[in-house]
């Protein structure tokens, strides 16, 4: 589906083995085992409360798993703070509600982490940031504050902010769910370009057009587990599970 499939076979970027997570008594994630290869674009979908968001939030340890193993880029996620910090440098995340820092300009939002975490000099951080703003199509907004931008523009800044750390993996947690319809496409276009560049991506979304066109693989979640795992072609045209059929019939 994309040009990087031959290299995709080379390396396991994310390995999950029997991963569990509880919120209090609620068993949110119930023994997930899966592997994401380098350069793969994985769409995660399923009913609300099925553990999709929790699954991707465990990959950069915004949520901690309580049982099982998660190995990201060869580093196992444990309580060791150094491991967590080195993982977070390699994993970018984009949120449903953008979460831009309202007191900083667009440029400052993007350069903050590279200059504070990667310790880049200001010139380099600014140069990289300008390049990324060009890439997401809004170089003219660099000096504005987030509140002066439309939702679609804010989400593109959020993508640029995550990319500024030059991550190996990008996680998207329902990146278009908070957007007005006419702005969804501009964000999906950026994500499509990113996928074509060979980025490893996990995207929680219900944009089935995007899934069909861009993803290599789709994971259907229900009740804290993966109930079906296949190519978009297989999921849309020949779903094996009744739950997948039912869910797709409800959203399409």
């Amino acid at each position: 589906m994309n040009a990087n499939q031959e290299t995709a076979a080379t390396q396991d970027m994310i390995v999950c083995r029997d991963v569990h997570k509880w919120f209090g008594q609620f068993h949110a994630v119930r023994g997930i085992t899966t592997t994401v290869k380098q350069g793969q674009v994985v769409v995660v979908f399923g009913p609300s409360g099925s553990g999709k968001s929790t699954f991707i939030r465990m990959i950069n340890r915004l949520d901690e798993h309580q049982k099982g193993d998660i190995i990201v880029d060869g580093i196992e996620l444990t309580d060791d703070i150094r491991n967590i910090e080195s993982i977070r440098r390699e994993v970018g995340m984009v949120f449903q509600s953008f979460n831009l820092f309202p007191h900083l300009t667009v440029m400052e939002n993007i350069t903050l982490a590279p200059s504070r975490v990667r310790k880049w000099p200001k010139d380099k951080a600014t140069e990289v940031a300008m390049g990324l703003l060009d890439r997401v199509g809004i170089p003219e907004q660099a000096t504005k504050y987030p509140a002066q931008l439309s939702g679609g523009q804010q989400q593109r800044v959020a993508i640029a902010r995550a990319l500024a750390m030059q991550p190996k993996i990008m996680l998207f947690d329902e990146p278009t769910s908070a957007l007005d319809p006419e702005m969804i496409k501009e964000v999906l276009d950026v994500m499509q370009e990113l996928a074509a560049s060979g980025m490893t991506m996990i995207v929680v979304t219900h944009e089935m057009g995007f899934a069909q066109e861009v993803s290599d693989r789709m994971l259907m979640f229900d009740h804290g587990n993966i109930v079906e795992d296949g190519s978009p072609d297989q999921i849309f045209n020949n779903p094996q599970e009744d739950r997948t059929k039912l869910f797709l019939s409800q959203i399409l």
């Binding site: 950069n60 915004l62 979460n99 820092f101 982490a113 504070r116 975490v117 750390m165």
Partner: peptide, 21 residues
């Protein structure tokens, strides 16, 4: 909003950096 600190953590900032920046 808790998303502010979450976004900062996801970017790899430390606790004190999140607090003061």
């Amino acid at each position: 909003h808790p998303g502010q600190a979450e976004a900062a953590r996801a970017l790899g900032l430390h606790g004190w950096q999140i607090t003061f920046l």
